[in-house]
Each structure stands twice: as structure tokens, then as C-alpha cells.
Simulated assay, not measured.
Amino acid sequence: MLIDPRHLIQLHMIVELGSFISAAERLGLTQPGLSRNIRLLESRIGVRLLIRGKHGAVPTDEGKTLAAYGRRLFELSQQAATTGAAVHRGEVGELRLGAAFSLANGLIAEPVSRFLAARPKTSLRVLPGPTPRLLEELDAGQLDLVVGGTQMLPEEHGLRFEALVDNDLVAVGRADHPLAKLEQDAPVAQLREYRWVACLEQDPLRRDVEAGMASLGLTQDCVALETASLTLVTDVLARTDFLTLIPSPLANALTASGRFARVQAASSYTLRPIGVAYRVNAYIPPIATAFIKVLRGWAQENRTSLAALRDD
């Protein structure tokens, strides 16, 4: 014997409100339609569930028992509706995010923190790696989004890249670094007097860093430390007169802390814009769409901050 769970919920509502009329209004049904459903339920069960009288509907003992199940179903349906709405808004679930090495090492800390703070029922799994490999994993459905440079797979893979922030290599040192006080570009001879920190050779950014250093007239023997740890980079910079070349959005985040400062140099090295890649011919979960919106807001703020720095 199968019982329609909606009929149990309707029975609960009648018992809760004590009236077919009130229950029909609450459920968005007509009174005749609601009466028909209860008669069908009574026919399926084979017992009387409600006694209709001048003062409304009174449940029998059997009606009270089944109405209790209806109440549980109603509460579950309300919880499911609330959860469903939260899922639709991207407030529930896990996001699998691929991030290029340098980005995973600190650049996306602000949007990630903002996203998680506003959505306590979500979680992020950030997987660092070279952008080409991450894009392959995105294409295979192993990731939901990839944040990185504009290295893309061929069009037939159906990936789309949305550029968010322009990107240059910027020289950075501690806030009171001698070269940070200069109001003009630091001469090459002075840049060579200091030791530098660089990312590892396995990081795709390393080739750009080497090219950027070459554009400043620096050679590889200036590099004193190679690391994939942004924490180590910042700790070393804070304790020494070492310098580093890092993407401008990351430099902006570091200088905003007040612990570090940009060093003006005669040459700038333009990198690929930073953006987010996602699949266009496949399902994009709401949590991914919500994170993209947070990234867009963060990018707009970053562009505004960079413009202000340039104006200064």
C-alpha cells in the first residue's frame, strides 16, 4: 500500500489548524480538492482519520498518529526548501578550485576569505599547480574553476577564460628598504647591490621572473633564495634588504599591509592577465558561480587600488 506523502502533510495541516478552510488556504489548494485528498487517504488506510463538525475537523486517534508523520514530512520539506535555496545561491557545498602556484601562495587569500566568511556552510579545496595541468583537470571535470594566467587549451575543449586583473612584475622590499625611499627609478647599479628572492624553476612564473630580472639588467647570480613559500618570501624580505619580483596584484596585497613597499625600477615586465577559467559546455555548480562573483568584486577593488597607486 502506497501513501502519497503530500496527503500526510495535508492531514497534518488540517489537524494543526483545525479547519479544512484554513489548511486549504495555507497549502494553496481548494477546499474541495483538499477534502478529496483526505477521503483518498482514508480509503487507502481503511480507517476514519478526521471527524468533521460545526467547529472544524477533529482527528481520530488514527488521524493523530498519521498527522504526526505528516508533521515530520512537512518539517523535512521546509528544511529541504531552505537548503535548496541555499544551494541555488551557492551557500552550501564544496568548491574545487585550481590555482596557479603564485596565486595559491597568497594572491587569492582575500577573495577566498571573503567567500568563506559569508558562507559558513561552504568549503574550498584549493589545488595548486601549473596552469596548463590545472586546465586539463578542469576540462576533465576534476575541478570546478581555475584561477591563473591566460594559458588556455584549444577551443574544442569548451573552456572560457574571463580576465579579471591586469598583471605586471613589480619589485618589492620591506617598507623601510633604502630603495623604497627613492622618488625615481632605481639605477641598475643599485639594484645589483641587493640580493633577490625568486620562485622555483617548476613554477611557470619563474620564466617571467627571469625575463623581468634581465630587463632590469640583473643576472641569475643575484638570486639568493628560491622558494615556493610566500610565507618564507615575506619573512625573509621583512628581515633583510632582499628584493623580489612578484605579480602586481600580489604586490598590491603585500604593500597594503604596510610591511612592504614597491621599488621603482626602470623597466616593467607585463604578464598575462589574471582571470578565472570555467567550462562553458557543462554544468557549473552554483557555488562556482557565487565564487566567480566574489572574484569579480575583488578584481574591481584591486583595479581601483592599483590605479590609485599609479596616480600617487
Results as ranks from 00 to 15, higher is better:
H177C: 00
E201I: 10
L169H: 08
P273Y: 05
A238Q: 11
M152C: 06
L243I: 01
D221I: 14
D235Y: 14
A189I: 13
Q79F: 10
T231M: 12
L250R: 14
S77T: 11
P204Q: 00
Q190G: 06
N105R: 06
D139Y: 13
H88S: 15
V188H: 15
T30G: 07
P128H: 06
Q190F: 13
A266C: 01
R310S: 11
L159I: 08
P204S: 02
D176Y: 08
Q151H: 13
F74A: 13
L225H: 04
W196N: 03
R89Q: 03
L159Q: 03
P154R: 08
L295V: 05
A253I: 10
A186G: 05
D235E: 10
R133P: 07
I274T: 04
L182H: 07
N167T: 09
A198I: 04
L164A: 02
W196T: 07
R6P: 04
L135M: 04
R26A: 08
L134E: 06
C199R: 13
Q190I: 08
D185Q: 13
S229C: 07
A214E: 10
E226D: 11
S22T: 11
L153R: 07
L225N: 03
Q220C: 12
A198H: 01
S267N: 09
A140Q: 04
A211W: 03
P249L: 02
A307R: 04
Q142K: 15
N37E: 13
H177E: 00
R192Q: 11
A299D: 08
L309W: 11
P247F: 04
E16G: 07
H177M: 00
L50I: 10
G28S: 10
G129A: 08
A86P: 01
I51F: 13
I3H: 01
E75W: 14
F291W: 00
V209F: 09
L169Q: 06
L27H: 07
Q184F: 14
Q10M: 05
I3V: 06
Q151N: 14
E156L: 12
L8W: 05
R125K: 07
L103G: 04
P120Q: 10
T255L: 05
G56A: 08
P32Y: 12
P32W: 08
L17T: 05
D311Q: 13
G173S: 02
L2H: 14
G217F: 00
L41P: 02
A211F: 01
R26C: 03
G217N: 02
W196H: 00
S35P: 12
D235T: 11
L169D: 06
V236S: 14
Q78C: 11
S19Q: 00
T83A: 11
A266V: 08
M152E: 14
Q300K: 15
A265T: 13
G56T: 09
R192M: 04
I38V: 07
A163M: 09
I45H: 05
T82A: 10
Y283E: 15
T150A: 15
D311A: 13
P273G: 07
V112R: 06
E210H: 09
I108E: 01
K181R: 12
V276H: 01
M13R: 12
P5A: 08
